[in-house]
Amino acid sequence: MSVLIDKFDVFAGGFWLTLQICVLAAIGALILGAVVAVLRISPVPPLRAVGTAYVNIFRNMPLTVVMFFAAFGLPALGSNADFLRIPGLDVVFRRLSTDLPYFRFALIALVLYTAAFVCEALRSGVNAVPAGQAEAARSLGLTFGQNLRYVVLPQSWKASVVPLGSVIIAMIKNSALVGFFGVVGDLSQTADQLTSAEGYAFIPVAIGISIGYLIMTVPLGALLDRIEKRQAVAR
């Protein structure tokens, strides 16, 4: 087990990179997912169709295939995803600006894939608000916008936050794939590096990276439980 101490800096570096890609992917997926959700509940049929098509494609395709498309499809189209070299953001997330584009490709795949699930979590929240409340708001004379803002969204958010959290936890675990698509130095690729290149025994290394993922996912899960309990009281 000495590898955990001897190579602590390697594990810590892997943890830090995985955390970075997860934070960026979560932000991207929440934004894109919200846009797709608005499309899907829009009263305009063509917009609804676009939203539905998006969810059907990305929710039903294996993440590995999405990663393949991002890592091999984008270069084939001549893109290095340079639009992700966002000034300011790349001070903290330095991998955004490296010449090797694989961090950006993996990020795109993770965002596209996760956004479909974010959309559905948000939509299930809107559907959880009883239609009668929206009707009561209309009968008081609230406009469509006021109805959403004061009655529907505050409640749909509460119903969305727990499923959203589950989506993000799944995304953190899914991020273990990025190491197989050219990203060097995240938690899962660290394991590969330490075992096959440097000859450390597999089980201690696996325990080390497991701890790394659990440090991210367990507190998030505990936070969700707390939010859920607080809501149960308010209900």
């Binding site: 009883p130 409340q133 009561a136 509460k158």
Partner: peptide, 20 residues
């Protein structure tokens, strides 16, 4: 229409109070 609705009170079978 919103203005008209504000002048007509409505009470529903299932109350429909805003739960939050």
């Amino acid at each position: 229409l919103a203005k008209l609705r504000s002048e007509v009170g409505m009470v529903f079978q299932s109350f429909n109070l805003f739960a939050h």
